[in-house]
Amino acid sequence: MIRTDVFFLYLFVMAGVTYLIRMLPLVLCKEKIENRFIKSFLYYIPYAVLSAMTIPAIFFSTGCLLSAILGLVVAVVLSLFEHKLLTVAIGACGTVFIVEWIMSLIK
């Protein structure tokens, strides 16, 4: 077991670094950016970040590849019809659950 004082030292440093990374840009960039290139960059960044985080990680987010693929397909179809985030999330989770349940029956 880790000594309590040592634990708190590590916890403090870990939380501190994580917080500074988040806090400094949010507090320092107070002015609206006018530069068109930077504005365009900031416009694309979120979608690029989310895309990179989702693919290929989503394929390894469930019990097996097949349920993940079908979950993704359902999420994409629901999103194309612009359903709410919660609907899409529940649709994908439900699909994964049903697929893995059927697969457990077959086994």
Partner: peptide, 29 residues
């Protein structure tokens, strides 16, 4: 296991609508 996909599904729901409307967003993604 089923809950594991929830966050990614949400990302999909955020990216797809703007990507559908703008080809540059889609290509960037």
């Amino acid at each position: 296991s089923a809950l594991g996909i929830a966050l990614y599904a949400m990302f999909v729901a955020i990216v797809i609508p703007p990507a559908k409307k703008s080809r540059s967003v889609a290509l960037c993604c």
